[in-house]
Design a protein around this nucleic acid. Structure first.
Lengths: 152, 152
DNA sequence: CCAGTTGGCCGAATGACGTTCATAGCATTG
DNA sequence: CAATGCTATGAACGTCATTCGGCCAACTGG
């Protein structure tokens, strides 16, 4: 994981559809070498997958909210994860430190749909409160630059 | 935007590197037709871009936190957005309803780096408080299924 | 210091795939 | 019914992904 690998990651995050020839030129490598590096990044799991970014409004998910869930017990169990995964509007679920124990990112079409999801969340065992933070406008969501770190 | 388009979006979210032939077979179309549909989805902006998903730990961003910022003024200005965009560790920035006015998603290598970012945030004009919610474990982050909606 | 080994790069060859196009079917509209 | 627009098909063509032999540089053990 050197500077060239980091450059490749940045370039691919910006546009994963460009050719290996272009990619190689950008970092000063041949087509084959660029291909080989990207292959290894995939192999190592640094690149998890190639995907598309979708316009949320266009696919009926114009509503975005974050929900802080407080519970009377530890929420880190597999059962909790599975229950949350089963809710198709929950985009992210994190265990957090602080007064809340769970933080969810939820995308729905309407506020009514958000209400439905919240009802489901309250149905989970041990849930005490669910504080919703509704997003009015998103400034940006973006990929981040890789950084060099001591470990590995 | 019919069921086939939604299927294509789902398939591409799962793996944007598969061939148009494969894609066509999955939805019951010829290679050319699948290609044409995806081209139009890009043209309309439904597909914003194709990108890669990176392992955060592997690129030195193992630390994740959400920050709720309270301010004494409206934070929706371009100046605020630009100031946040200039912070390379801020992955997302949203204007929200509720007692906070801004919600940020921040990824850094260490807690020290998080502190640096928080210092920068406090330096923004009119910022009163910044409550950090530190992520201990991420259950999942995933693409969501497109849904049909009345509008358009 | 010298093989021997490893790992990465280059450049070329080959086969697969992206992309385009002519044609045809189908629905909608006047 | 005729005209128009939209979309699918299947084939043709050019580009690109993928592989491979050969080369070079760095490291390793004798």
């Amino acid at each position: 994981m050197d500077d060239i690998d980091r450059s490749l990651l940045t370039l691919l995050q910006a546009d994963a559809s460009q050719s290996y020839a272009t990619l190689g030129q950008s970092v000063g490598l041949s087509t084959g070498a660029a291909h080989e590096r990207v292959r290894k990044l995939r192999e190592r799991g640094v690149i998890r997958r190639t995907t598309i970014e979708v316009d949320h409004d266009a696919v009926g998910r114009g509503m975005l909210a974050f929900v802080l869930v407080e519970a009377s017990t530890w929420m880190g169990s597999d059962e909790t994860r599975d229950a949350l995964m089963a809710l198709p509007d929950v985009q992210e679920a994190h265990i957090v430190a602080g007064s809340a124990s769970l933080l969810l990112k939820i995308r729905t079409a309407t506020t009514e749909d958000l209400q439905v999801v919240l009802r489901r969340i309250y149905e989970l065992d041990q849930v005490l409160t669910a504080r919703s933070v509704v997003v009015l406008e998103t400034f940006f969501e973006r990929p981040l630059e890789p950084v060099q770190h001591s470990g590995s």
